[in-house]
Amino acid sequence: MAAPAHGEDSDDGMDEFMETFKTRKYKNAFNESNWEEEFDKVPMFMKTAPEEINPEKHPDLACIQSIIHDDERTPEEQARSLKDEGNEYFKEKNYKKAVVSYTAGLKKNCVDLELNAVLYTNRAAAHFYLGNMRSSLNDATAAKKLKPDHIKAILRGAQCCMELRNHTEALEWCDEGLRLLPTDKKLLELRAKADKHKREAERDARKAQIKAKKEKNEREALLAAIKERGIKLLKPTPSQHRASDGEEDDGGSSRALADLELDGIGSQEATGARVYMDEQGLLHWPVLFLYPEHSQTDFISAFCENSSFIDHLAVMFGEELPPWDTERKYRPPNLQLFFEDHKKGNLYQVDLEKSLLNVLQNQRFTVKAGTPSFIVLVSGSPFCKQYLSGKKVQRLK
């Protein structure tokens, strides 16, 4: 048989390829060890899209993407392709990329209102799973505006309001959806949940209001009692009440007392205690005793204003003395009590038989940070003499 003429050869070289294929193994064929890996490179069978599409590594994908983003197609076609792209990302739970795709689709400004409504609704879903509830609600609102009967958008809006704890608005979304689909199970369940949470929130608000009113009345009664006793209070820091350092209430300024609102007479944050008035109308103060010789302190959380200092000191320094008193000299008969005039720095010695109220009412005494404080020294001790030297000391009458 004569050899074929040159013009009769295959134009695409398929005959030559087939002859070569019989004797030479195909290098790019799948095998048992890598077929799954190679299969995953084929766009149709990919489980997940690569983070970045490199035309050299992923030529098929690059080609498909160029088709998707082909500007020669109509805005509707491009937006629909971007919607599908976003849906694929959404299925892969790559919500950030889904948002990007849906946003790109919306930017095409196509005239298909229903398509735009779907893009908004889908982007609302992606935002929802990213935790961007406010953005999700905005998209659901935009979708409903374009398509008022879009149940998915209405349901998403209701869910966002629930997450934002806006139960009243959630009920409005649910009611709007139930007017369209009165038997929708999801909307009915969501409405029942929103109504329950709304009732609970209203109940809690009422309780909080009653509690706040009670606390306000107690606070006003307490401040009035302090004012009646003529007790001076050192105001909190300027940042708290815009008062200058050392500004105090002399018992005659109702505005100053109102401004304090217990911040200036309560040490609850620091010590867990605060001045209070009992059922008999007696004040109980948190009181601090300072022992500068040993850098120690004692704290009495509720010192009744009618109690004397010796009553408490006899308990604190009774049979069992504190471990830091190694010389066993802190006995009640040996103790002297002082308070400091915060303005002049003078010390005033307190009669241990006096009541707390008697001392608090002294014109030289000022309650600082809601906690009256006193210095305790051992009479005649070397430390006492050294501590008092150079200081002006006066004994209260």
Rank of each mutant, 00 (worst) to 15 (best):
I375W: 09
A194L: 07
W173I: 03
A225C: 07
N34V: 11
N122H: 05
Q296W: 02
A201F: 05
E220F: 00
D250Q: 08
L130W: 04
L82V: 13
L113S: 05
G230H: 09
Y102W: 07
D325I: 06
G345T: 10
R331G: 07
D341R: 12
H167Q: 13
E72T: 12
S379N: 13
S295V: 12
K193A: 10
F309Y: 04
Q394C: 04
L352Y: 00
D245R: 11
D325V: 11
P236I: 02
L388P: 10
S239D: 15
Q268F: 03
R229I: 04
V275G: 00
M46D: 01
L290E: 05
L352F: 07
L396F: 07
L222A: 02
D84M: 05
D263L: 13
E353R: 15
G345E: 09
K385P: 04
E319Q: 13
P323C: 04
K227P: 10
D9M: 15
S254L: 13
E19F: 05
K392S: 03
L282Q: 14
A192Q: 13
K83L: 12
L396G: 06
Y95W: 06
L222Q: 03
K216M: 12
P4V: 15
F21L: 11
C304H: 01
E92D: 06
A62L: 02
A117S: 07
E37Q: 07
L356H: 05
T271H: 04
E51H: 10
P4E: 12
I375V: 15
Q78E: 09
L283E: 06
R242L: 15
I53N: 02
K57C: 11
E169A: 06
P322Y: 04
A256C: 13
A221T: 08
K147R: 09
E37C: 03
K97N: 14
D311H: 12
E76Q: 14
V315W: 07
A143M: 01
N346F: 14
E77F: 08
F303K: 01
I375F: 08
Y26S: 03
A270N: 08
G86H: 07
T183S: 10
K145R: 14
D71H: 03
P236S: 03
K185F: 09
T237D: 02
G390S: 03
T297A: 08
N346P: 09
A142I: 03
D351Y: 12
K196A: 11
Q209L: 05
N31T: 12
A79C: 08
Q394S: 15
A224I: 02
F39E: 12
T74G: 07
Y291N: 05
A243K: 12
H342Q: 14
